[in-house]
């Protein structure tokens, strides 16, 4: 059952991405209404997919790459819906939905069977670790999209052109604020994710920290965002610098999540496929 729901929500995200892309070309506001309805429906069905998999598996389904990709995408769409409601940013869906779709397609290509839970994952802490980490990552994705939109808008303003897209993009102020807000949520969540991960590691392997690639890279990511937050609050790194840092941070996030799994061997390897 959960696989059906998963596939339907992937299809809906696909449709929404199409409509959002057409919107970028035609800039007809009617399209947005359809796109956001489709995304909302996709999110509801995706939620059903998660719940039914939870019931069918008997554990929180965030234990292999298929599950975590799907969970990450679910969080991203959740953040999109919240930010979209709160800030009414027209273009946001055109940037976030394709990212969620790519994760979903990736997850679609991976083995989807429910397997008996590996012993190290049978921990009270593990689901918290994953949920915190991915919710944080979803906010970093939002910060990334705001960064990209900021650079586009800034480029148009600096080059003194009034492109049609620039007119629809939010103002620099809104994009910079949203970048900051998403860090304010994302950073504590990432911190919690690392802490709960360490606690879980203590249960699973008998040590809090072991410098395996995943751990190292999440620490690098953590330092990147910590640096950005610090500079922002002290010397007023904002605007372009903050946008670039949010993009850099997101690349680190992706590498920590996917690159490490696929390229570097380590303890998190069970989450390979």
């Amino acid at each position: 059952m959960n696989i059906y729901f998963f596939k339907i929500s992937t299809l809906l995200y696909f449709l929404a991405t199409m409509v959002y892309s057409v919107y970028l070309i035609l800039l007809k506001d009617d399209l947005l209404r359809w796109a956001s309805r489709t995304v909302l429906l996709g999110f509801v069905i995706h939620t059903l997919a998660f719940l039914s998999r939870y019931v069918e598996a008997g554990y929180t389904p965030v234990t292999n790459l298929h599950e975590s990709l799907s969970f990450f995408a679910w969080m991203i769409i959740g953040v999109l819906l919240i930010a979209g409601l709160r800030y009414r940013i027209k273009m946001l869906g055109s940037f976030l939905t394709p990212i969620a779709l790519i994760l979903m397609l990736f997850a679609l290509a991976l083995p989807k069977e429910i397997l008996p839970l590996a012993p190290v994952l049978r921990s009270f802490w593990h689901p918290f670790h994953v949920i915190f980490a991915f919710l944080g990552n979803a906010f970093f994705t939002l910060a990334f999209c705001c960064g990209v939109m900021y650079l586009i808008q800034e480029h148009q303003l600096k080059s003194k052109r009034m492109g049609a897209i620039g007119k629809r993009l939010p103002s620099l102020k809104v994009l910079d604020d949203l970048n900051y807000y998403s860090l304010k949520f994302g950073f504590p969540l990432l911190t919690l994710g690392i802490i709960t991960g360490a606690v879980w590691a203590e249960y699973a392997w008998g040590r809090y920290w072991g410098w395996d690639p995943k751990e190292t890279w999440s620490l690098i990511t953590w330092f990147l965002y910590a640096a950005l937050l610090h500079q922002r609050l002290t010397v007023g790194w904002r605007g372009r610098k903050a946008a670039l840092m949010a993009i850099l941070g997101f690349i680190a996030v992706l590498f920590t999540f996917l690159g490490v799994n696929l390229l570097l061997p380590g303890l998190h390897a069970y989450s390979n496929w």
Binding site: Q153, L157, M162, G166, L169, P170, S171, L172, K173, V174
Partner: peptide, 12 residues
């Protein structure tokens, strides 16, 4: 009006 529009694109 262009000046106002630009200001809005910067400051909301």
């Amino acid at each position: 009006s262009v000046a106002v529009e630009l200001a809005q694109r910067i400051f909301g």
